[in-house]
Write a protein that binds this DNA or RNA. Structure first.
Lengths: 341, 341
DNA sequence: ATAAATTGTGCAAACGATTGCACAAAATAT
DNA sequence: ATATTTTGTGCAATCGTTTGCACAATTTAT
């Protein structure tokens, strides 16, 4: 039971040198077919396993890439991660998943760890807490490719892939208006985050284009846009002198919270009140009524991010130009907003 | 802008050797306070970053541990992972999250990748598809500590942490019986998986202890126990000559599917029909009515698994004895099963 | 038939840290 | 005052691959 075998062990048995073994294993074309076969067979026989550590040390490439998301237990991020895994996996890269839990400290620590591990690149979506992004700067200095997606920062000059949040929000709001809702409120996220800012802008633009007044009392801002936030928010809105008759929420979770309270209060959805969320979380399709929402095409986001990384890693370091991919979201209309039949 | 600095750079600047620098940085007590300080300062000044690759190659320890779960977007696994991260992080370990997506091939590939990366250990929950576990055996051969949790295999002699699934199922079923339900059905998982087998056994035992007849027509087996499975399952059950009046589902998701259909069919929960799930997924608390379920104490599972790993890694290789940690689950009673007030 | 290109392999130096051994200087014990 | 221990550092080998350079043997071109 050979504990650990190295290319030297293989070399010794075959009376050749380790260089030749290394080349045979890595597919160097200068190696003759016969020795290659012999090496491969002996490798299998000795239960040889490539030592990625040694390889990485010498070659400078770890074939490892870090993917950092706020949290992996959100359908959106989980799908993006999976899609990245599939895409870069085909090119021989391993993915290390990191979670920032929306904390800047974790984000910083993860970056440190990935740098120590000498990851070949990082694909990330920025933590909510990170208003400044200096901790990402050192990646630039160290020439580690960084690709951002979804939650990006304009302060970083890197390739990125986003969806058109403005358009998604615009369409959702316009749809509510077209369904006859008049006083549409908005659950907004923190405005230093691009996606929430864009969604807010889309909402306002739609109101304006359709000639509806914007009323800032109908906009509530939340740190996390969770279910509880939605519950709290809808209570605030219903207590207004002139309560709204619909909510466009920047998050499905907050929309769901609102739905709970509305149902409890005997307010009928969609007859009396319209609801639309954002992200197309799985639960949106099985709550009652189904929640109208915006699909972000997470798989495509992941694939795009992965490909941007692969491009960048293969490009000449100095003449690579950063790219921006913008995908178009899709409005998913469900019962929660369908007043007209 | 020093691109990359090594301990040699630091050494050169201070007119000492790399060995001394290495020792100073790693906290060796033989180094004088003055040189240590000088090294630390110079390191910061040169923007030095420890090269974990080189270190790993020489020392044989990567301080990296792989955590493999079927999928990270389930609340249960996500919490376990987080808890492991926190626990081993304190001991200086990095966590690499891998997902098998319940596929044996992915599981095998992940193990290969982790071995290539020379992970110091692996904590895993086995994929549904894996009936045999030979791909785990090579870890034993290569002396890489393996800790299993939740979905374990009796074919592997390793430390493990599980909850008492039998007890959880027993309590859930007993609770339904005590609420007056008479014909309790069960959504079961694949029986080659320990947790589903135990839950099934708990269900049967409770029926028996309370003098209720076991009827195999009331047990439906599902591959994945998803929402759709629950929808399909409840339809089957309702079509029986003598339909059940309650379901204990081995998964919250399937229970949720059943709930949807029951509501659509105008069957009142809990008055006409009782429901209980398993896992305490977040949505169980906000569906209407709240779903009775079983909490698995995921954080404790993660912490226990992490500590088992840390113990094993520190033990003498040959005299380590495998340990089994069994945690007690907790029944969470909600409206879906509370017929008696 | 000679020159040039190609093919297949070996040599040896990296990559950047860790670590056993050695040893001088300083501190402590006898 | 000498012997012994402790303290602080250096030397050099090592971890397992990769890779530029060299070079003989073969093949192809002129």
């Amino acid at each position: 039971m050979a504990k650990k075998s190295t290319i030297h062990d293989i070399a010794k048995e075959l009376n050749i040198t380790a260089s030749t073994v290394s080349r045979a294993l890595s597919g160097n074309t200068r190696i003759s077919e016969s020795t290659r076969e012999a090496v491969l067979e002996k490798a299998k026989q000795l239960n040889y396993q490539h030592n990625q550590i040694a390889s990485a040390l010498r070659s400078g490439r770890t074939y490892t890439i870090g993917v950092m998301v706020p949290t992996a237990d959100r359908s959106f991020f989980s799908k993006v991660v999976r899609s990245i895994e599939e895409e870069v996996g085909r090119a021989g890269y391993n993915v290390i998943i990191c979670q920032s839990y929306d904390r800047q400290k974790n984000e910083r620590d993860n970056i440190e760890a990935l740098l120590r591990l000498r990851a070949d690149g990082i694909i990330a979506s920025i933590a909510k807490e990170s208003r400044d992004v200096e901790h990402f700067q050192q990646l630039r200095q160290r020439k580690v490719p960084l690709i951002l997606f979804d939650r990006v920062s304009s302060q970083l000059e890197v390739s990125r892939v986003v969806i058109d949040d403005f358009l998604g929000a615009y369409r959702a709001t316009a749809h509510l208006i077209e369904q006859g809702y008049q006083r549409i409120a908005h659950f907004a996220g923190l405005q230093h985050i691009n996606i929430y800012q864009d969604r807010f802008r889309g909402y306002r633009q739609a109101l304006q284009d359709y000639g509806l007044a914007f009323d800032e009392k109908r906009v509530l801002y939340f740190q996390d846009l969770l279910i509880e936030d939605g519950m709290y928010g809808i209570r605030q809105l219903l207590a207004l002198p002139q309560p709204p008759d619909a909510v466009f929420s920047a998050s499905d979770y907050a929309a769901l919270g609102a739905m709970q309270i509305l149902k409890e209060s005997g307010i009928r959805i969609p007859q009396d009140f319209g609801l639309a969320g954002f992200a197309n979380e799985p639960f949106t399709s099985f709550v009652e009524p189904g929640l109208t929402t915006v699909e972000q095409h997470s798989r495509q986001i992941g694939a795009a991010a992965a490909n941007l990384f692969l491009e960048e890693i293969q490009a000449e370091p100095d003449q690579y130009v950063f790219r921006k991919v913008v995908l178009t979201p899709e409005l998913i209309v469900r019962a929660s907003s369908q007043r007209q039949i």
